[in-house]
């Protein structure tokens, strides 16, 4: 039940002695790295070149380098933790599950979008470049503003639409009908595809591959009745026809979704429906 105006949020000055933050320059990041000796047996040395940004420290982005000793089978995310926990606590990144299912840690790694928890040290050593994903405003270091991404996702009505009275038990769906949209159910909304797309970087309007993937998931679900509404949304100038099939999205997807194919299927659905 949405009643945004009933009880507006009320900012109020708390008592002065409860102010958390003191004014003044924050401590310079990059300070106090732990001295790392040579790699132990079975370890490798990895240099991380990380694109940093913190408007409270400097107006522009800069690069920092950290050298850490890691096991070859460690994840790049483990190396970033090594940096954050033992070299520079100010490094900001998002992460949670650490095995490629939550979608928090999409980054630009050696120029390609990937999840830091699905890249192993041995595949990038001795040196790796890490930057935030592109096309979304950087808030701090590797953290970007995800709101425009989720707004695009919400625009495609990403939920089952079916006003018919459901049966007492499950709706029936054959394995073939279920298989039709299987691939696009895998999406974890990490934004690796959308932020790898040159059209998405180029203008702020293209809804992007991830939103189309999530529309596809319902458009091709035999139980759904909302395809027409979604296809109308995706047929407009911010929609699927901006796609230039560069396949960046398919290469970037950490879930192996055939993103470009899904976009093409949505394009075809619109054309057959219309023509």
């Amino acid at each position: 039940m949405a009643h945004p105006d009933l009880w507006p949020e009320t900012p109020h000055e708390g008592p002065e002695d409860l102010e958390l933050w003191e004014e003044g320059p924050p401590r310079e990041p990059g300070a106090g790295p732990r001295a790392e000796g040579p790699p132990a047996a079975g370890e490798v040395r990895l240099t991380l070149k990380i694109r940093r940004y913190n408007p409270a420290v400097r107006p522009d982005a800069w690069w920092d380098e950290f050298a850490v000793n890691m096991h070859p089978t460690d994840r790049l995310l483990d190396a970033l933790h090594e940096v954050k926990w033992f070299h520079d606590g100010t490094l900001a990144l998002r992460r949670s599950c650490a095995h490629g299912v939550c979608g928090s840690d999409a980054m630009l790694i050696d120029g390609r979008n990937a999840l830091a928890c699905k890249v192993l040290v041995k595949d990038v050593a001795p040196k790796v470049t890490v930057e935030p994903i592109r096309g979304l405003r950087v808030i701090k270091d590797l953290v970007v503003d995800m709101e425009p991404f989720f707004e695009g996702y919400k625009r495609v009505l990403p939920f089952l639409i079916n006003d018919e009275d459901p049966p007492d038990r499950e709706r029936l769906q054959t394995p073939q009908e279920r298989e039709r949209y299987d691939d696009t159910t895998k999406c974890i909304l990490c934004a690796a595809c959308t932020t790898s797309c040159p059209i998405f970087w180029g203008d702020g309007e293209y809804i992007g591959p991830a939103a189309i993937v999530n529309a596809h998931r319902f458009v091709f679900d035999s139980r759904d009745r909302g395809a027409r509404d979604r296809l109308d949304i995706l047929a407009d100038r911010t929609g699927v026809f901006r796609c230039r099939t560069t396949f960046n999205c398919t290469e970037a997807c950490p879930r192996g979704i055939k993103v470009t194919k899904a976009i093409q299927e949505v394009k075809r659905a619109i054309m057959f429906d219309r023509l």
């Binding site: 499950e170 054959t174 299987d182």
Partner: peptide, 18 residues
Amino acid sequence: VIELEHWGFPFNRTLRGR
């Protein structure tokens, strides 16, 4: 389970669609 199915949960299906 039935409520989730009605909300669109993509359960694997038997040959008869259950």
